[in-house]
Amino acid sequence: MRHYHCNSPEAAGRILAACLLSDGHLGLTELEALDRCGMERRLSLNRSRLLSIVQTLYEDLTRCGYLSWSDVCQVDPATLACLAADVHDRQLRRDIIDLCNEAVMADHSYCDREADFLRLLRDAWQLPAQ
């Protein structure tokens, strides 16, 4: 897994990217919701850079051997904990959680994988459930 500086836009974007992939589908509706919710202002990350981070994350996750798309989309708890450890700033954590919530609700459906991802992320940061 590539390393990003702690609290960097890339570290924040990688967590958001993992969330976006957790249901196995990244759609325009989710990206538009992130734009409306101020992703660029809050994370210093525009849509183009986020999509590049999604691609990089996908490459990192598939390096460990043959995985199906479904397997890649399920970031395991240990990997998510490593990603979460790259963000220490409390406000940045809140912004990431808020943006993740907006993205998963953008398509008006909330699947178990997305719920699990958000729960694991909150657990990693010791944040209360919403």
Score class of each variant (00 low, 15 high):
Arg2His: 15
Arg2Ala: 12
Arg2Cys: 07
Asn7Thr: 08
Pro9His: 00
Ala11His: 02
Ala11Arg: 01
Gly13Val: 00
Ile15Cys: 06
Leu16His: 06
Leu16Pro: 00
Ala17Gly: 09
Ala18Trp: 00
Ala18Met: 06
Ala18Gly: 12
Cys19Tyr: 01
Leu20Lys: 00
Asp23Cys: 08
His25Thr: 13
Gly27Lys: 00
Thr29Trp: 13
Leu31Gln: 06
Leu31Lys: 08
Leu31Ala: 11
Glu32Ile: 15
Ala33His: 03
Ala33Leu: 09
Asp35Cys: 11
Cys37Gln: 15
Gly38His: 10
Glu40Tyr: 07
Arg41Val: 13
Arg41Ile: 06
Arg41Thr: 15
Leu43Glu: 02
Leu43Tyr: 02
Ser44Phe: 12
Ser44Ala: 09
Asn46Trp: 05
Arg47His: 13
Ser48Met: 14
Arg49His: 14
Leu50Phe: 01
Ile53Cys: 07
Ile53His: 00
Gln55Lys: 11
Asp60Glu: 15
Gly65Lys: 01
Trp69Phe: 11
Ser70Asn: 12
Ser70Arg: 11
Ser70Tyr: 12
Asp71Gly: 07
Gln74His: 05
Val75Gly: 01
Val75Thr: 10
Asp76Met: 05
Ala81Trp: 03
Ala85His: 15
Val87Ile: 11
Gln91Pro: 04
Leu92Gly: 01
Arg93Phe: 09
Arg93Thr: 05
Ile96Met: 06
Ile96His: 05
Ile96Gly: 02
Ile97Thr: 14
Asn101Gln: 13
Asn101Val: 03
Glu102Ile: 03
Ala103Val: 02
Val104Ser: 02
Met105Gly: 04
Met105Gln: 10
Asp107Lys: 08
Tyr110Cys: 13
Asp112Val: 13
Asp116Cys: 13
Leu118Trp: 00
Leu118Asn: 00
Leu121Val: 10
Asp123His: 07
Pro128Lys: 10
Ala129Thr: 11
Gln130Asp: 12
Gln130Trp: 09
